[in-house]
Amino acid sequence: MMGKAVAAVLTLLLISAVGTKGKALPRSATELRCQCIGTHSKFIHPKFIHNVNLIPSGPHCKNVEVIATLTDGREVCLEPTAPWVKLIIKAILDK
């Protein structure tokens, strides 16, 4: 009986870990950590992107973070080294 409970808990932990890939963490008043716990590198058509935040690396996080807000309200962390994301970053910086 104890083995089934342990297996159920481990399964729930695994499912919750898989579901977090590419999502931005909720922002707090003091952002002293990275916002992205994983990144998304597959192409997202620009018509589905409402806004893009570019967060440079610094003392709070060693990574450059690119967080896209989609038209349905979801926030997705984009992989900064993906070619299509580089084009978005260049367009933002050129403005």
Rank of each mutant, 00 (worst) to 15 (best):
A29G: 13
S16W: 11
L25D: 04
R33N: 05
V52P: 08
R33F: 05
S16C: 11
E31G: 09
G38N: 06
K21L: 14
R27G: 14
F48E: 14
K47Y: 11
A17F: 13
V18F: 13
L32T: 09
C36F: 02
K62I: 12
E31H: 01
I15W: 03
V64G: 00
P46K: 13
A29E: 06
K62R: 00
F43C: 01
H45M: 06
G38D: 05
T39H: 04
P56L: 03
L32G: 10
T20S: 14
P26T: 11
H45L: 15
C36R: 01
I15V: 12
T39N: 14
P59H: 07
G19W: 06
R27F: 06
Q35E: 00
F48S: 10
T20G: 08
K21D: 05
P26Q: 00
K23Q: 08
A24L: 12
T39Q: 11
H60V: 04
I67P: 04
F43Q: 01
P56E: 09
S41E: 13
I44R: 01
P56Q: 10
G38I: 10
I67G: 01
F43E: 07
I44A: 10
P56S: 13
R33H: 11
I55V: 15
G22A: 05
G19E: 03
G22M: 10
N53F: 08
T20N: 14
E65I: 03
G22E: 11
A17K: 08
K62V: 15
Q35G: 01
T39F: 12
K42P: 00
G22T: 02
C61P: 02
E65D: 07
A29D: 04
C61F: 05
R27D: 05
F48Y: 11
V64D: 02
F48G: 00
H40S: 06
K23W: 14
H60G: 14
L25A: 15
S16D: 02
G58E: 08
T20H: 06
I49T: 08
T20I: 07
C34Q: 01
N51R: 05
S57Q: 13
A17L: 09
E65Q: 14
I37S: 15
I15C: 07
H40P: 03
H45N: 15
S57F: 09
H50S: 12
E31P: 03
S28G: 14
V66Y: 00
S28T: 11
K23I: 09
P26C: 01
G22Q: 02
H50E: 14
C61I: 01
L25W: 00
V52Y: 06
P46I: 12
H50Y: 13
A24D: 07
E65Y: 02
P46S: 12
A17S: 07
A24V: 12
H50K: 15
P46G: 14
N53T: 10
H60Y: 10
K47T: 11
V18T: 13
G22R: 08
A24E: 12
I67Y: 01
N53M: 12
R27Y: 07
I15E: 06
F43H: 08
S28L: 14
K42T: 11
S41C: 05
H60N: 12
T30G: 09
C61K: 00
T30Y: 13
P26E: 04
C61T: 00
S28N: 11
H45F: 06
